[in-house]
Design a protein around this nucleic acid. Structure first.
Lengths: 191, 191
DNA sequence: AGTTTCAGTCTACAGTTGTTGACTGAAACC
DNA sequence: GGTTTCAGTCAACAACTGTAGACTGAAACT
């Protein structure tokens, strides 16, 4: 009982304290990058919201770029496969989730895409990968174009709802899906 | 013949020289704002590409903000009206034009929208106005939502094509319209 | 011809930013 | 108990930015 034993009244050990601080910084970064984009978010702002210090942010994450990379990492989406009908179901389910989910992290990546070339490239890669995979399983000559339109529709809906806050798109997710769902089915089925 | 007569060998008068310089600056601003967004574009970059000087840009346009406002002004779109069939036609025509047109100015506005709050508000206003106007003429209970989805689809297509450069969306505008057109018709018609 | 205007250039300033390094105190170890 | 480690703080720097103002020379006017 030599190591790690002095945790009697100390509520948090040192390693855990650090982990918590890192998480607070990362969360603050996600929020701020999502609200103001990469360029308008300063390291000092992040540190301040996290109740921390700019120097510490640098030490823990290396640079603002690396902090951003961790904060706005695009979650990898599972493969979409099956019969056209199943594909349509999975696509609408994915869209529904994107419209419902807490938008902080996704917004950070989307915002950055418009001012931060590397982020744009990453979004492009993520979208292209999924789009290609879907296209392979769609019937028809213009499968790639149609799956591209599906991606565009998804992107447009997410941006219009969470970023532009367009009138009407603040409707319930079910109502939106009732309208967007058939469009996706139609795009999956082809002409 | 006292005024404006010394234009013998002088290829350009002074007033015209100035107008040309202003135009060069404005064009350079459009290009650079479109390529790099508002924050990543510096007044010096604009001046340099225009073969001019940063101080001069300030004197002519007042501030970087005002320069941007002029460079990225959103072109006012004509009203859309008529029978649902005519509306669908006008909407598809508008989309087709947005997919074909030179994207510099539009990109500047779009890029800025995600990092520049005032620009975001302006885009929101422009989109909302058109969307409301369209919604008024659509049948059905959920007209506003459907016209919102039309806006989202349009936005998503423009962004995916010009900014993300998504695979498949680099197809000819006709091919794209052959796919997107029916979707718009369906959204206009309602359930 | 002499004076005024003004397009264009150059220099400087004040504020902000990312980033670094020295310092401090308490927890972790022997 | 004494030493080491390390999370957290503070102050400073170098680069860059928007912006202002003084200056220059030639065109425009009388």
């Amino acid at each position: 009982m030599s190591v790690n034993m002095r945790r009697l009244n100390a509520v948090t050990t040192r390693a855990e304290q650090r982990r918590q601080t890192e998480m607070r910084i990362l969360q603050a970064a996600r929020e701020l990058f999502g609200e103001h984009g990469f360029d308008r978010t300063t390291v000092r702002m992040v540190a301040s919201r996290a109740g921390s210090d700019a120097g510490l942010v640098m030490r823990y994450f290396g640079s603002k770029e690396q902090l951003f990379a961790q904060a706005a990492a695009i979650p990898v989406e599972g493969p979409i496969e099956g019969s056209p009908l199943q594909i349509a179901e999975q696509l609408t389910a994915a869209l529904s989730e994107k419209l419902t989910a807490e938008p902080a992290a996704a917004l950070a990546a989307l915002r950055a895409m418009f001012s931060h070339p590397e982020a744009a490239e990453e979004v492009r890669k993520a979208m292209t990968a999924q789009q290609r995979q879907v296209a392979e399983q769609l019937p028809g000559e213009d499968a790639l174009v149609r799956s591209g339109v599906i991606g565009a529709l998804t992107l447009g809906l997410v941006i219009s709802r969470h970023l532009v806050k367009l009138d009407g798109l603040d409707a319930g997710a079910e109502e939106l899906m009732a309208i967007a769902g058939p469009l996706i089915e139609e795009l999956v089925a082809g002409p």
